[in-house]
Amino acid sequence: MQARLTASDLACRRGERLLFRGLSLKLSPGDVLHITGENGTGKTSLLRILAGLLSPYSGEVSHEGAIGMLDERPALDPDQPLGDALHFWQQVDGCADASEAASAMELDALLEVPVRYLSTGQRKRAAMARLLCQDAPIWLLDEPLSGLDDRSQARIAETLSAHAESGRIVVLASHQPIAVERLNVFTLAEYVV
């Protein structure tokens, strides 16, 4: 099955405030979409709407293929050693080998360290390893580069490129520029009310 993600005429309202409206997207295999916009324009809300975690005020979202999401919450138990925390998701996702994903994110030396002792960047990479293990064709990433050093940023960019090249979809919201081929930039400000 080929991954697809379509949104039509989306509007998002948070509290009494209408964040954006009239937003439509159509993403096909291999697409990488970089959503940009100032703080508070609704980037995170848009990603959550696309993921089906938040209801849009109006409009519709449809997708073919599983969705994997990375946001500021790594969903890894803080008390557990990283290896065990990843192992939980490995079991849930039926992933054959979580160590491969951990190696890809250079986490081998940290597998015995409880998640709560990891730095922000290490946690971000750990969450990325969880996402790799999930093997979902559509990735929705909220600030995947924040807290990462240059080397890790380059590694994430490579991972995203590889994901897109294998005929899958990446949508990321970030303030930082990212070097990924076939990148389309989508400025949310154009839809802000």
Binding site: G52, L53, I67, R73
Partner: peptide, 14 residues
Amino acid sequence: VELGLFDQLKLRGV
């Protein structure tokens, strides 16, 4: 909720 566990499970269809 703060960990994002329920969101991740929901994405996996649980």
